[in-house]
Write a protein that binds this DNA or RNA. Sequence first.
RNA 1: GCGGAUGUGGCGAAAUUGGCACACGCGCCAGGUUUAGGUCCUGGUGGGAAACCAUGCAGGUUCGAAUCCUGUCAUCCGCACCA
Length: 800
Amino acid sequence: MYDFKKIEKKWQDFWKATQPFKAINNSKKPKFYSLIEFPYPSSQGLHVGHPRSYVALDIISRKRRMQDYNVLFPIGWDAFGLPTENYAIKNNVHPKEITEKSIAKFKNQLQSLGLSFDWSREINTTDPKYFKWTQWIFSRLFENGLAAKEETLINWCTSCKCVLANEEVISGQCERCSGEVIQKQKSQWVLKITKYAQRLIDDLDSLDYPERVKQQQKNWIGKSEGALIKFKISSGQELEIFTTRPETICGISYMVIAPENKILDEISQHITNLEKINKYKQEAAKKNDFQRSQMVKEKTGVEIKGVLAINPFNGKEIPIFTADYVLANYGTGAIMAVPAHDERDWEFAVKYNLPKPMVICPEDSQNIELTKAFTGNGKLINSGFLNGLTIEEAKKKVIEFLILNKAGKSQVNFKLRDWIFARQRYWGEPIPIINCKECGFVLEENLPLLLPEVQNFQPLENGESPISNCSNWVNTKCPKCGREAQRETDTMPQWAGSSWYFLRYLDPNNNDSLADEEALKYWLPVDWYNGGMEHTTLHLLYSRFWHKFLYDIHVVPCSEPYAKRTCHGMILGESNEKMSKSRGNVVNPDDIIQEFGADVMRVYEMFIGDFENAASWNTKSISGCKRFIEKFFNLNNILAKQENIRNEFLILINKAIKKVSEDIENLKFNTAIATLMDLLGQIKATNLITREELKIFIILLNPFAPHVTEEIWQKSGFKKTVAEQSWPYYNEELINSEKNEIVVQINGKIKTKIMADPDIDKSELINLAKNNKLILKELNNKEIIKEICIPKKIINFVVK
RNA sequence: GCGGAUGUGGCGAAAUUGGCACACGCGCCAGGUUUAGGUCCUGGUGGGAAACCAUGCAGGUUCGAAUCCUGUCAUCCGCACCA
C-alpha cells in the first residue's frame, strides 16, 4: 500500500533534521548556483504555476549534487508590494502581519513539495537586515549620480494613487489593478538606467539566454541611430529634433512639436494663435497614452502661427505644428516631418493638405507619383549636392555638413527611459534621503532607515505617501549642517529588493557588507536562473543594471549576474485560459498534494508538456503519473536476490541513463519521464527486477520523485540515502554496439526492415537488403537507378 | 504596424535535428479479477475494403520533408505614432 502521506512526511522530517541540501561557502568542490525567482508571498498562497519552475530547478539541483557539485539552491521572499498593502487597508491590519502570515503559508506549501532548498539561507526583502543593503545600494547609486530627483512626465495610476514605471503600464492600464493610467508632471526619483543602455544590449551576446529573451530586451531598450539637428526659429530660439533619416532633410514639409514640450512656452509670446494652441494642449493632456494609440488613424494637430523654422541645410522656411502624434518623452519631443518618406507624416500631410516633396527615388523608376510614403531604398533627388547619392552616402554627407555648420551631430537614441524609482505608498523600503534647504539632498547615514509606524496606510488624496503625515519621522536634522530638514516620504518600488537578492543568499547574515567578498567570488555568477517571460523587461533588466553598477564600483566580481537564463511556460486552466479567481478555474496545489501526494504532483507537472511552452492543467491526466509512481513503489515486491543487470537490459538501461541525463539538461522533463515509464513497463513485464537495475532506476527517478525513491531505497536495504549516491554513467560504446533496424525503401516507400550490425559496411548492407526475399521480388525486372544508403538508418532504391 | 512563438490523433504531446509520423500518458473500446468500482491486469485504438492517404493551407528543393525554402491562413505573447 502506497501511503504517500506517511512516506512524504517521514522524508521531509528527515531533511529538516539532517539538512542534507545545505550549501557550503568554502568548499573545494566545483560550485553550482541554481536560482528560481523568489516568490511574492500573496495571501492566496501558492498557485500550481509556481512549482513548475521550482520543481524543474530542484531536479537540476538534485542531479548536480549527485554529480558531486557544491550546489546552492536558495529561497526567500519578495515581500514588499502593493497587493499586501491593499489587503492590509481593506482588513485594517498592518502589512507586516499579513506578510508574516503569507510567508508562513508559502513556506509550509513549499516544504510539502519536497524541494531541496537550503532553508538556512532564507531571506526576506522586508527584513530591515535585508533592506539595509537595498538602501545602501541606493545610496551608492545616488553618490554616483545614477539616482536623482527629476521633474518628468510620469505614469500615474488613478486607482493605486501611485506612480508606475513604464514597464508597469500595460495598454494604458496599471499592471496590477488595471486602473486607468494618466500622464502627470511630477518631481520623481529616477535611476539612470539609460546610462547603461548600450552595455545592456552589448553584453547580451555573451550570455546563455533564450533568443526571445535577448530580442525582447533589445527591442525594449530600442536603440536607434540618427542625428540631432538644430533649426533656428524666426522668433530667435532654436528647435532641436532627432531623426533617423537626416538624409531626407530637403524633403521636410513641416515641423512638429509635442504638445507637452516646454519650448512651446518659450516661444508663446510670438505665437499669434495662442488660444487655439493652448486649447489643443489641454485636450492632448486629457488623453492617456492608450487613448492616443487608439487614435493612431486619427492624427490631429494645430499649426503654430507666427513662427517658422529655418532649414539649416538650404535656408528654407518651414511651418511648425503641434500634434500629439509626436511624443514628448522620446528624442527631443519634436520632429522634422518628411511626408514623402514617413508613413505617419504622410497621413498628417494628407489630412492637413501639406506638400509632400520627394527626395528619394527608387533606382529603377523615375518621376513616379507617390500614393503613399516611400520608405524603401533608392537615390537622392531634389537635394542639391546630395543628388545621386545612396541613402547611406547622403546620411554621412548631411551629418558632416551639420557638424561643419554647428547645426547638429550624429546621435544614438534609446526607447528605454530612466527607471522611475519612487512609489507614494507605505509598504516599501524608505528612500534614505534627507532634503535640507541649505545642503540639498543628503544621504541618511544610519541604515537601515526603518518605516515609521502609521495609523492609516491609505495613500493621501493629494497623491503623497501616508508616511508624509508622520511629522516626527519626516522632520529631522540635516546630517551635514545640522539644520532642520525633511525626509523623503516616497518608498522604493517593488523591484528594488529583487534587483540584488541573489547576492544576499551567498552570505545572508552579514552585517558589514551585502555579502562577503570571498563568497561573491566563489558563487557568482548564477549558473542557471529560471523564471517567467513576464519579467524579461522588468526584473531581469533591472537586476542586470544594478549588477553592472555594483561591478563598476567593485562590489561584485563579474559584470553579468546570470550566466544562463531559461523560461518556463505558464500553467493554464483546463479550458486553456489563464487561471484566475474571477474565472473560478484556479487549482490549489494543496488539494493535489492531499489527494495524490507531492511526488505524483511533481511528476505530473514535469510530464504535463514542453517545459518552455504553456500547458493546460488536466486533473484527470494525473492518474497516469499516479499509476507510474505506484508501479514503481510495488517494484519492491518483485525484487530479486540477483545483483547485476540482466544482459537483455544492459543496452536499454544505458540508453535510459543517457536519455534522462540529457533530457534534464535540456529541460525535456516530459520525455525523461516517458523514458522511465517505458523502462519500468519493460522490466515489470519480466516480473522481476535485479538489485542493480532497481538501484539505477531509483537514482534516475529520484530528482523527480524524491520521497518515494528514498523510501524504496531504504526498504530495499541499500546503504545511505539516494541523495548521497553518484549520478550513473552510461556506456556509449555499449549503446552503439546494438544491432540496428534498417528501413528498406523502394522509391521512398517503405517495403521492409532488416537487422544489421552497426559496423557493417555500406556495400555489404546494400547486398543484405537486395537479397531480402521481399526486396528481391520487388526489384525483379526493374532497373536500379540510384542506391541511397545511410548507415544505421535507411536504404532507398530508386528504380524505373 | 513591428518583434517573437506556435500550428501533428478525441486530448496533453513525441519524433535521435532531413531518414519507420503519432513514443509516453489521458480518454475511449474489448476481455479478465472483484460483492462493488472513479481499483487492478491483458489487449486494441489516425483515416480507408484495399492500393494507399494523413503533420493548418498552396507551391518548391530532395532519392527522401512534420523538419529546409517561398507564399498564405489561423492562434497566442510582447511592444505599439519611438521620428
